[in-house]
Amino acid sequence: MLRIRRFEEKAGQLYGMGLVGGFCHLYIGQEAVVVGVQLALAPGDQVITSYRDHGHMLATGMAPRGVMAELTGRAPGYSRGKGGSMHMFSREKNFFGGHGIVGAQVSIGTGLAFSNHYRGSANVAVAYMGEGASNQGQVFESFNLAALMKLPCVYVIENNRYGMGTSVERASASRNLSQNGAPWCIPGVQVDGMDVLAVHAAAQAAVAHCRDGNGPYLLEMKTYRYRGHSMSDPAKYRTREEVSEMREHHDPITAARAELLRLGVPEAELKSVEDEVKTLINDAADFAQTSPEPDAAELWTDILLENAHP
């Protein structure tokens, strides 16, 4: 969680310096969601999400250097500088993006689950979406398909209360998004997404349900993003008090730190983890700033794959 927090702060800083272009959607505040879910997964399980994706990538084990270098549009970035903040992938880590079209990743994630089902593997796919995306038609189409075919897909709605500037109350007539799969009998629960242990427990149950061949499962994570929708969002649709309240009293990292101390982990050990993370992120930022831009020839690569057998 701390790695994601420090990464995102640094990404925001680089954005402010003009080193990161385009859109940059930070995950600060929501860290407990991906960390809790990822810890419930097994090797071979797939993960897919939308454009607020830096946290998901780090949680799957992707290297901060490669992610940060993609943000700065450099050659050693995960997409060789051709994807940017919203479009990164790692076949090695089973991270399938990083998708810029709101809701598209939910159907694609359903297809990842379909592939597990088709192959008879025990793997599970996790498809994340924001509560804003949860209103897209193809999300409901996917729920129907997954329930009909009993696909092993955990749908995670990260309800951070605002789809850009529109609050969930103004966007969704559903007051309990965990029940959005109810017409298809998809079990769903609401989870305190600011509590990493609660997230982890819920994710374990969801993953077990899918792995046992019972079809899809829906988790609604009640979470919060501290920053604007993207870097250029002045966030005038909510009060400063609301943000401070969440930061000061519900921060997932502060809570986890307190819990670790309570369990007897020495302060010095936590401090050393903090230092380690700081070093890691500073190294990633240096790497991202000093790596070369992609070669001009990269313009014409990766458009089509060569035909192995014509």
Binding site: Q46, I48, F96, A104, V106, S107, I108, G109, T110, G111, L112, A113, F114, S115, N116, Y118, R119, A125, G137, Q138, F140, E141, S142, N144, L145, L148
Partner: peptide, 21 residues
């Protein structure tokens, strides 16, 4: 056989292809 749900099943097929099918 799929239901009449082009957007959903096309996305699903794309995901299956990305997974190697």
């Amino acid at each position: 056989d799929t239901p009449i749900t082009e957007h959903g099943f096309t996305g699903m097929a794309v995901g299956a292809a990305m997974a190697g099918l």
